[in-house]
Design a protein around this nucleic acid. Structure first.
Lengths: 201, 201
DNA sequence: ACCATGTTTGACTGACGCGTCAGATCTGAC
DNA sequence: GTCAGATCTGACGCGTCAGTCAAACATGGT
């Protein structure tokens, strides 16, 4: 090889710009030229690393997900109490800072695209599955230790995850009846509901 | 007027075709020409009734919502038991037939568009508000009659509605881990969780 | 110096699709 | 029958944008 490869760095640069543009303008309105402008790179170079706009989007979705997972893993390490673990896990999804908001934007775009694209459905399946496994484990553990109400952990997990998704959408839409604070309160309230009174203190 | 107005009929025809096309191809891929083809009307006529593609979409969103509300109102009339009322209300949102599926498609498109369009945010606000009021009333009533667990009815309502939204998205995406049946079971399971044991039988 | 290879550029092309428009057609009133 | 106004048509103009390409540039090896 004549030169050290800049590919990894350049791809990251492009994907980050993509996420930013999608978050700001939405997937539909995103243009390759926008990504080029935001990353300070010519449109030709974008196509040098990603054949089509669709490839670019798919890569951005995947990259965004991997980033999120990595960031989240560290959060739960030190917490033992199941109720607190669950609370913290839900809190980690709140669209509370710019990065998380951008991620949610991307995630919503993914959903709508995935409805008509099997490739993206696979990605959703993978992400949703991992998410579900982690949360179900916390709930199952809490039930075994007598801290949570009874009930199928998988059912509870699906209910919680879907709730978070639905809440986040409303927050992203700047709904007056669903602000970030209200979303936080709703998540906490539901955890309270699942936590057994005797063990709550 | 020289002729009886066909406007109402024609608009309905166009809006119905719009919903159908959006459900099939997604909002991004929808073309005015598609709507023309599906409704058996020339593209010129579409623009005769709707100035721009955006106007058409907005009208379709609004029309779809009004239709849904009307259909739903009748469902709850004969039911008295709060638990059953809640169960039935949630069930009425299941993407269980073609019409409901199309409505959900439109609804998801609305969300993603609304993130970047204040006009649509207003529509969401209105719909979400009405939905919320109806469900909160059922929950409050059930609590007064001692059939539901305690807890802020508004908080519970937001949790339930968001859950339904999130579940529906996964169903629309043909998720293997969230089928229509599973969504139904999840809704029922959560109603069970909110219903007091003594009153459940 | 020169080459091979990796990288970058931005002007260009070709397809695509919204919205226009000039005229055709239909309907009821008189 | 004729007229006014409503309705309808489909070809076309025009801007937009993904993707191409030929040429330029950079870098490290020899």
């Amino acid at each position: 090889m004549a030169r050290p490869s800049v590919e990894a760095e350049r791809r990251e640069q492009i994907l980050s710009a993509t996420r930013s543009v999608v978050a700001e303008k939405g997937f539909k309105a995103m243009r390759v030229a926008d990504v080029a402008a935001r990353s300070g790179i010519s449109s030709g170079t974008i196509h040098y690393y990603f054949d089509t706009k669709r490839d670019l989007m798919h890569a951005a979705f995947e990259w965004n997900f991997e980033n999120s997972e990595a960031r989240r893993a560290a959060l739960l390490e030190d917490i033992d109490d199941p109720s607190e673990r669950l609370r913290m896990l839900l809190a980690s999804y709140l669209p509370a800072d710019d990065l998380l908001i951008e991620s949610w934007h991307l995630w919503c775009s993914l959903w709508v695209e995935a409805i008509h694209e099997p490739d993206l459905q696979e990605l959703n399946e993978k992400v949703y599955g991992e998410w579900r496994r982690g949360m179900a484990a916390i709930i199952r553990d809490g039930q075994l230790r007598g801290r949570f109400v009874d009930g199928d952990p998988v059912l509870l997990t699906n209910a919680l995850i879907s709730m978070v998704d639905g809440l986040a959408i409303q927050v992203l839409m700047s709904s007056r009846s669903m602000t970030l604070d209200r979303m936080r309160a709703t998540c906490d309230g539901v955890v309270d509901l699942l936590t057994l009174p005797a063990a709550a203190g």
